[in-house]
């Protein structure tokens, strides 16, 4: 079973496609694959404590906490958080702050990498 690295760069408030990407992460994890979801750029907006991406116009978007519960390792880029003034202490449960080098680590380890 392959391991996957899914890199999300958009937030669900700007792109309705984010829901499908998170669904993919959940589906791969449920099939038994190791899945890392790395949030970078505006995608870290989703990780803010209190963010509600499951608003009616984007109802397919899963919560990050639910993804983490379902076995997806959810990481948020520390630089992107800092750029946007988001405190690493105010993130949704299940989201871990990580440097961008985590992406290179996963690529070097042979994870199948997909950017959205």
């Amino acid at each position: 079973m392959a391991d996957y690295l899914l890199i999300e760069s958009r937030d669900p408030f700007e792109s309705a496609e984010v829901g499908g990407f998170l669904d993919l992460a959940e589906g791969l994890a449920k099939e038994g694959s190791g899945v890392t979801l790395f949030l970078v750029q505006n995608a870290v907006m989703t990780a803010r404590h209190g963010a509600r991406p499951t608003v009616p116009h984007n109802g397919r978007v899963l919560s990050l906490a639910a993804l983490a519960t379902n076995g997806v390792r959810v990481l948020a880029d520390s630089f992107s958080l800092q750029e946007r003034g988001i405190s690493p202490n105010r993130l949704i449960a299940g989201v871990t702050v990580a440097p961008l080098s985590a992406v290179v680590d996963q690529m070097a380890a042979g994870c199948k990498a997909l950017w959205h």
Binding site: S9, V40, Q41, N42, F79, L100, S101, V103, V104, A108
Partner: peptide, 16 residues
């Protein structure tokens, strides 16, 4: 910002 992120990734790989 994708350009910046891409070059950050390349820079990390280059440093290794």
């Amino acid at each position: 910002a994708r350009t910046t992120t891409a070059l950050r990734l390349i820079d990390i790989a280059a440093r290794r």
